[in-house]
């Protein structure tokens, strides 16, 4: 019998173990992107880096915001702000499933006692113009991760294909730690001099943001900002590849992509404010997708995107 890892004791310990595990497996352990995003996939380390031919391996925590999921901190597992753990490896290694299962062991899930299943779940992001095939991974009937082989991003075929793993950290941690309400989950070690629960850290912000997202955010301003971000994204990319000041070829794919992320988040907020009708919804999604495509087109023209002079 091999030694089973001990049970983690807190939310943060699970995060740290994932960081250590994927770091040891050769991923660049990156930091969250410094903008509001709906999911870890939006981080340029995933969206943009999954494009082009250059190999890539990154892992990171990404705070994610889904304004419509706000429940004022009352729902046991719905939050408008939560954390995703994201791993992206290009090309997807042949033993990605085994690597993934190893990460579950690393956070204290005993493979001999649990029932792990890969259940079909194809992933699609209409706003990113992206899709892939894969599974949701079940542990004893509970979805603990999303496992996807990217086929297309920003309208571009992925070649080579990236393997993407996304862990919903709160839910996974609640399962591993045996917690029923997210707010009761130990954030740091419960033996710490100042022991903090998830609720100590986030209950108040969940309330504040729920109120803001549903009732207070200025829709008029948001609508304006959406238009601005949309226009700015296109404007940035309209610049010639050659920078007149340095004479270098500098395509501003990332700054443009920031505007795309911004538009996407503003759309989510408008959605939460309930001012977008079903049909308008499609049109907004289409507009964000158009930006994502522009950025993807630009990125593959850069060095990181595999462009060579």
């Amino acid at each position: 019998m091999t030694d089973k890892p001990t049970k983690p004791r807190s939310f943060q310990e699970i995060i740290l173990r994932l960081q250590n595990y994927w770091g040891a497996k050769g991923c660049a352990v990156m930091q969250p992107y410094d903008m509001e995003v709906g999911a870890g996939t939006f981080h340029p380390a995933t969206t943009l880096r999954s494009l082009g031919s250059k190999p890539w391996a990154a892992a990171y925590v990404q705070p994610s915001r889904r304004p419509t999921d706000g429940r004022y901190g009352e729902n046991p597992n719905r939050l408008q702000h939560y954390y995703q753990y994201q791993v992206l490896i290009k090309p997807s290694p042949p033993d990605l499933q085994a690597l993934y299962l190893g990460s579950l062991e690393a956070i204290g899930i005993d493979m001999d006692m649990h029932d792990i299943r890969f259940v079909e779940d194809d992933w699609e992001s209409p706003t990113l113009g992206a899709w892939g095939l894969g599974w949701e991974v079940w542990c004893d009937g509970m979805e603990v991760s999303q496992f996807t082989y990217f086929q297309q991003v920003g309208g571009h075929d992925c070649h080579p294909v990236s393997g993407e793993l996304t862990y919903g950290l709160e839910r996974l941690a609640m399962y591993v730690l045996g917690i029923d309400h997210v707010m009761d989950m130990p954030y740091n070690d419960p033996q710490s001099p100042i022991a903090l629960k998830y609720g100590d850290v986030f209950r108040q912000t969940e309330e504040e943001y729920s109120r803001h997202n549903f009732d207070a955010a200025s829709t008029e301003m948001l609508l304006r900002h959406f238009e601005d971000a949309e226009a700015e994204c296109a404007r940035i990319l309209d610049n010639a590849a050659e920078d007149p000041k340095t004479g270098k070829r500098i395509i501003m794919a990332h700054p443009a992509y920031d505007q795309c992320i911004k538009a996407s988040h503003i759309f989510n907020l408008l959605d939460a404010r309930g001012v977008i009708s079903v049909t308008e919804r499609q049109s907004y999604i289409g507009r964000v997708r158009a930006l994502a495509k522009l950025c993807a087109d630009a990125f593959v023209q850069t060095e990181a995107g595999g462009w060579a002079a």
């Binding site: 006692m113 649990h114 029932d115 009937g141 509970m142």
Partner: peptide, 28 residues
Amino acid sequence: ITVANRETRDNGATILAGNQKVLSARLS
């Protein structure tokens, strides 16, 4: 009734407890 993909030395007790918990959350 749930159908697991394996036997365990606790005869599925952990698996069943996990499934039961997920179900309770859903049904709540």
